[in-house]
């Protein structure tokens, strides 16, 4: 929230002139009958999407020339608000003259663009972007009926945010590449979740199969697991610098057990690893002497040198050993 958001939007003032004009006077509102289509030797397809109980419903009519698969005429009926009616009107406009195969490529983004007065100003406010999605859905359904296939077969990828048409694959990739951690970042990078907000989390305007919160959580979890797996691999392959802290401690303990401790114990002493600090330049290993080593003259000279050079040789040249 800031100064410009205090009053809130005046919803209808944010509509483009085109939306207003088409709501007031839709050009392709109406029906096409079976007889009418047959009299031209054409096939009629009628498809519904949505329902009154959703608050939005559209019925799309296509008169198709069966020889060319071309949509020669199209009409619509709509139960919905102004943007739903205007979107339906532009949708029929976009369908006319296209083949069915071309028409299925029309998306809600195309519908919204066609409703704009100027190319870079949205035709409707964010919460109304969703109205044009129905147009896209009903086209798929009509095409499926004509071609005798399932409407979902036209969908090549899983669309998570329908308003901005962002796929699951894109979202996962963007989260990974940019190391995103918040929903706001996802919206900034992809526009997903920036419109009707249904896809952000359950409980919004419509139920979704995938939600951004889950995708983010799952992808982050996967990234963490991969990081762990990479570290584990590094351990197995002896890449000390790629190891996790726990693995580094274990590796150091193993080297000390194998090559150092026996000599200390012989003199009545011992040591323990306290901490490890990784920086670009050094890997600092903090140790504490125990027993006779504690206070022994060579503990800060010869013994220390021996421990450090063993670790350097066996694990990493970046290691420095620091007694505390």
């Amino acid at each position: 929230m800031a100064k410009n958001d205090i009053l809130g939007d005046s919803l209808w003032d944010a509509y483009s002139d085109k939306v207003t004009t088409l709501m007031n006077n839709p050009q392709h509102q109406g029906e096409i009958t079976e007889e009418e289509a047959a009299s031209h030797g054409n096939k009629l397809i009628v498809a519904d999407f949505g329902a009154e109980s959703c608050g939005d419903a559209v019925r799309l009519y296509w008169e198709i020339d069966p020889k060319t698969d071309k949509i020669v005429n199209s009409k619509f009926k709509s139960f919905g608000c102004g943007t739903a009616i205007a979107s339906s009107d532009v949708m029929t406009e976009l369908c006319i003259g296209k083949t069915v195969q071309e028409a299925v490529k029309i998306t809600n983004i195309d519908v919204e663009l066609a409703l704009r007065d100027t190319p870079d100003v949205p035709a409707v406010p964010p919460q109304k972007m969703h109205c044009s999605v129905m147009a896209y859905d009903v086209i798929k359904k009509a095409a499926g009926l004509y071609m005798g296939v399932d409407a979902e077969s036209f969908e090549e990828e899983i669309i998570v945010c329908e308003c901005a048409r962002v796929s699951l694959g894109t979202l996962q990739e963007v989260i990974r590449l940019n190391d995103l951690t918040t929903i706001e970042q996802i919206t900034d990078y992809t526009k997903a979740g920036g419109f009707c907000k249904s896809c952000i989390k359950p409980g919004g305007h419509e139920a979704r199969e995938y939600y951004l919160v889950d995708i983010l959580a799952d992808t982050r979890k996967q990234m963490d697991e991969e990081k762990m797996a990479a570290a584990a691999d590094a351990g197995a392959s002896g890449d000390f610098e790629g190891m996790t802290l726990v693995q580094q401690i274990k590796a150091i303990d193993a080297v000390i057990d194998e090559s150092v401790r026996q000599f200390l114990v012989m003199d009545g002493g011992d040591m323990e690893v306290i901490d490890i600090k990784n920086s670009d330049e050094y890997i600092d290993v903090y140790i504490r002497y125990l027993g006779a080593c504690n206070g022994c003259a060579s503990s800060s000279t010869g013994t220390l040198y021996a421990i450090e050079s063993t670790l350097k040789e066996k694990l990493s040249s970046k290691i420095r050993v620091l007694p505390i």
Binding site: E31, I32, T33, E34, L44, I45, V46, A47, D48, F49, G50, A51, S53, C54, G55, D56, A57, R59, Y61, K77, M134, K141, A142, G144, L145, H205, E206, A207
Partner: peptide, 17 residues
């Protein structure tokens, strides 16, 4: 609307919300 959907093109209930 008077013209009914092509068989298979109907919507029974709300599938959106």
């Amino acid at each position: 609307a008077k013209v009914q959907p092509t068989p298979g093109g109907e919507v029974q209930e709300c599938e959106l919300h």
